[in-house]
Structures are given as C-alpha cells and as structure tokens.
Design a protein around this nucleic acid. Structure first.
Lengths: 86, 86, 86, 86
DNA sequence: ATTGCGGTTTTTGCCC
DNA sequence: GGGCAAAAACCGCAAT
C-alpha cells in the first residue's frame, strides 16, 4: 500500500493539482481540435472523390515506412558510435 | 462496386492526393506532439507525488460531466424542435 | 515471436476449441436476440408517436449519468486507497 | 418541422415513456451481461493458450459462412416460389 | 516480460 | 446510400 502522496489537501498542493488538471485539459482540447481538423480534411477529400479508407491506408503505410527508416538511422548511429565515428 | 475514384493518375489528381496526405501527416505530427506534452505533464506530476491513475480518473470524470451537459443541451434542443418551438 | 499456442491439432485441444467457439456463438445469438427485442420496442414506440431520436438521446444521457456516478465511486475508492484507508 | 408527437406531457404519455425507457434499459443491461460473459470466455481461452485474435477471426468467418448459407437458402426459396414449387 | 487497462481507430449496423 | 451511433479491434502505456 502506498503512503499518502499529497498530504496538503486544500493547500498549496490543491493549487498545484488544479494547475495540472487544467494544463492537461487545455492540451486535450488542442488535441481534439487537431483531430477535428484531420476529420475535416478526410471529409473534404471524400467530397472530391477520394476514398477515405484508402487514404488512411496510405497514411498508415507511410508512417510504418518512416518508422522503419528511423530504426535504420538509429541502428546506423549505434554502429558509428561503436566504431568511434562520432 | 465503385468506379475508380480518381482517374488522372500522375496528373493533377496526384498532386491533390499528395497535398491531402501531407496536410494530414502534418496534423498527425502536431497531434502526437501534444500527446507527448500531456505525457510529460503526467510524468512531472508523478515526480512531485501525484498519482497518475487518480489524475486520469479526475480528467475522465470531468470530461464526462462536460459531455453530459452538452447532451442535456442537445436533448433540450430536440424537445424544442419536436414541439415546433424552433 | 510466439510458439504455436496449441500443438495438439485434432486432439483434445481441438475439442476444447470447438467448445469455446460454440459457447461464444451461442451467447452471440442471445445477444442478437436481445438487440432485436430492443429494436422492436423502438419501433413500437415510434408507432405510437414517440420520436426514436429523442428516446435514444434520453437513454444515452441516463447511461452517462450512471457512468458518472460509478466513476465518482471509483475515484473515491482510489483516494481512500491512496490515503491508506484501505 | 414535425408536429408535437406527444401532447400529454406528464400524463399517461409520460407513464408510457417511462415504461419504454425502462424496458429498453433493462434489455441493454441484459445485453451487456452477455457481452461480459463473452469477454470472460475469451479471457479464459487466452489463459489456456488460445489466441483471442484468431478465435475472433474464426467466429467472424463462420458467421459470414452462415449468412451466405442463409442467403443461399433465401435465394433457393425465391426460385422455388417463382417456379411454383412452394 | 507480460498482462491488464485506457484511448483511439476502424468496422459494423441502423435509420433515414 | 450516406451519415450517425454502437461495437469491436488495435495499440501503447503502465504497473507488477
């Protein structure tokens, strides 16, 4: 069992809690705003004849490829470091 | 079965496709950035004695309450519409 | 990579697999039956002048409120646990 | 815009509304109970070495095949009816 | 390491 | 068939 993590209920800790919550909520709103923007683009694309499903597949595929490339790069860095190539 | 939605492969449609994809990918990156910011806040909060699990629960609860209020409003609108109160 | 989870193809494991599948399928049927019952009630209500859309909204709202309460309780439990009140 | 669907607010219609809502909510609960049972079976199966993902695929496949068969049967009935084979 | 859990996304079904 | 809500599948974190 854990000890009481924050003992100062209602005091300065309460203020910090409020700050944390609000910062997160603010960011969550931003995130939702962007998600909505993305949805709009999909809707617009659909309206001009593109298929949402295919678009999503392309996005996913490119993301995977990008991740692969990053892994490659990381591996390369590792090798270089191991060889003292800075 | 649907026809090919975009026939002009390599032409202007290809350009528009590229634009759509890139706009979405840009926004996805932004979204990820914000998600990372949120994670940072949780990590920081945890480092100063708050429990992540509780924080998340509070956020979720507040979000649901907000949704409730929005649904209440939507329901009220529905009733008004149903009663011809426009 | 995971090993083959069930090696005894055709043997006892096959029998257990069949049992699992059939139990799930049976329950899925029951679930579908209930879903159909719900649809019937909506249809009947609509036939006597209620608007389905509003009914669904009410149901959803009440469900969310119930969830809120449950989350409240869960949060309270979390707090108690965090304070060592077991 | 639609006319007022239920004029007797608070009277007998209110009683009927309550009845409808409660019947639906009751059935929704039942449905949820069954869904939970299904989840339990998946969890149990996983605990004894089956892969949930595969199990779900099997279920889906069998369901499709069953639907196909039902469509086949319906088609057959149609033909028979068209041929007066009753 | 692995398993549960929360969030997100994708699919499905429903109603219009 | 097209939009909308519900369900399911997938993913990623976190805790153990």
């Amino acid at each position: 069992m854990s000890d009481a993590p924050v003992t100062d209920v209602g005091g300065i800790a309460g203020e910090r809690l409020r700050s944390i919550i609000e910062r997160i909520e603010r960011l969550e709103e931003d995130k939702k705003g962007i998600a909505d923007d993305i949805k709009d683009i999909y809707a617009e694309a659909k309206g001009t004849g593109f298929e949402t499903k295919i678009l999503r597949q392309i996005i996913r595929l490119r993301k995977m490829e990008k991740n692969d490339r990053q892994e490659q790069d990381a591996l390369l860095e590792l090798y270089k470091a191991a060889l003292g190539m800075e």
